[in-house]
Simulated scan of single mutants.
Amino acid sequence: MQEPIDLFSDTRTKPTKAMREVMATALVGDEQVFEDPSVNELCARTADLLGKERAMFLPSGTMCNQIAIAVRCRLGEAVYLDCTAHPLTAEAGGPAALAGVILAALPGERGVFTGPQLEAALAGPNRNKPRARLVSVEQTSNFGGGRVWRLDELDAVCSVAAKAGVGTHMDGARLMNAVVASGVPAGRQVRDFDTCWLDFSKGLGAPVGAVLAGSADFIEEAWRFKQMLGGAMRQAGILAAACTYALDHHVERLAEDHENARRLADGLATIKGITLDPATIETNLVFFEIEGDAQSFVKALAKEGIRMGAMGARIVRAVTHLDIDKAGIDRAIAAAARVLA
């Protein structure tokens, strides 16, 4: 029996044999008092990569977002972000529950809003509106189908925010996918953002972890919230070693995932009952519309040994990653054709 092809998310990646070996031999210590050499190395390397003063290892990107918002904002203040952004759609109301903030959604195009849109939203002052405190950008945009924010778009948003005296934060869930797709280094992409984070448990293939970066003062205060939210760990070097391995070995190979995503899109676009423009595929996310019910489609596809995700009544998402090769992509295309036939 053939192994299932799991295209549900790039979070489904499993540590490679070499990564597991590095984890097994990692130097460890008490992370909370900065005595874990593997965690310290990862934080130093990531801070350098992102051009920030300090960095902090956390269990998840969601916790990175929550801490960044909590440090920067006070009760009743507003965070501006795209209407499809992760803190708004997939963090269980955390910003409201944990920081007491309002998420002000901007209607971007494929997850990307513009400088002029932000400028219009921030226009004021107006004592009747929540005080704008933070602008958040998700790179790449998940619900934008892996859309990469261009450098001019990032610069425009940061410029508007700076003029308004509003802080900036980058959700770097798939930042390295954007780096590989655009050729623009991570440090340049986040240059004008006050805070940012890099995820290791998606395309980079580590089992756990993200690193939040910013100024020394920001990270000092962020540690209070890390303790508060239960994000502080002990011998976390076992996990950090996997992330460092990913930096060394799994960044350039993201191009393979992008190539496989385009291969998948090209194949799916030929199937009757699927609406998809392959030209919109920039990274490893493939969103498409089907004629019929998305839930029924993915259930039927699962019986064929292929897993994708229903993201709406008629929208399906497939995500390529290091556990999926070209043969797996071709199996997925063939299975989709059989289901829709």
Rank of each mutant, 00 (worst) to 15 (best):
Gly108Arg: 04
Val112Leu: 13
Asp325Gly: 11
Glu77His: 03
Ala97Leu: 13
Arg263Leu: 09
Glu259Gln: 05
Ile102Glu: 14
Ala161Ile: 07
Gly267Asn: 09
Gly93Tyr: 11
Gly203Val: 03
Tyr245Lys: 05
Leu322Thr: 12
Glu35Leu: 06
Ala255Arg: 10
Glu31Leu: 00
Met176Glu: 07
Val160Met: 05
Gly205Leu: 15
Leu154His: 06
Lys326Glu: 11
Lys17Leu: 01
Phe200Pro: 01
Leu301Asn: 10
Lys326Ala: 13
Lys129Pro: 00
Leu122Gly: 01
Pro278His: 13
Glu91Trp: 04
Thr62Ile: 08
Leu134Tyr: 04
Thr25Pro: 01
Cys73Leu: 07
Ala44Thr: 14
Glu138His: 05
Ala334Phe: 02
Gln139Glu: 12
Arg20Thr: 06
Gly230Lys: 11
Gly214Leu: 10
Arg317Tyr: 03
Asp248Gln: 13
Val160Phe: 08
Gln235Thr: 09
Ile102Ala: 15
Ala99Gly: 05
Ala92Asn: 09
Val180Lys: 12
Gly183Gln: 13
Lys129Asp: 07
Asp325Pro: 13
Leu239Glu: 03
Ala240Val: 00
Lys52Ser: 07
Ala120Tyr: 05
Asp48Tyr: 03
Glu289Thr: 15
Phe225His: 14
Leu268Arg: 12
Phe200His: 03
Cys243Thr: 08
Ala300Ile: 05
Phe193Leu: 04
Glu256Ala: 15
Glu35Phe: 00
Cys83Ser: 06
Pro87Leu: 10
Glu252Met: 07
Cys243Gly: 06
Asp293Ala: 07
Leu106Tyr: 14
Thr275Lys: 11
Trp197Pro: 07
Arg314Ala: 09
Asp199His: 07
Glu53Pro: 01
Arg307Asp: 00
Ala78Lys: 04
Leu49Glu: 04
Lys17Ile: 00
Ala47Thr: 15
Ala255Thr: 00
Val251Gly: 03
Val166Pro: 01
Ala341Ser: 08
Met170Val: 15
Gln2Lys: 03
Gly111Ser: 12
Arg127Cys: 06
Leu75Met: 08
Leu50His: 05
Leu88Gln: 10
Ser136Asn: 10
Ile102Val: 15
Trp223Lys: 06
Gln139Asn: 15
Glu221Met: 07
Gly203Tyr: 06
Asn128Tyr: 14
Gly273Tyr: 06
Trp149Met: 11
His249Glu: 14
Val319Trp: 04
Thr244Phe: 00
Ala240Asn: 00
Glu119Phe: 00
Ala246Thr: 13
Pro125Ser: 11
Ser141Tyr: 13
Pro37Ile: 10
Thr283Ala: 10
Asp152Val: 01
Phe143His: 14
Asp325Trp: 02
Asp194Ser: 08
Gly93Lys: 15
Leu301His: 08
Thr270Lys: 15
Val251Lys: 04
Met308Arg: 01
Cys43Met: 10
Glu282Cys: 14
Val211Asn: 06
Leu122Lys: 01
Thr244Met: 02
Thr168His: 09
Phe288Cys: 04
Ala162Gln: 14
Asp30Cys: 02
Cys73Phe: 07
Gly146Ile: 11
Phe288Gly: 02
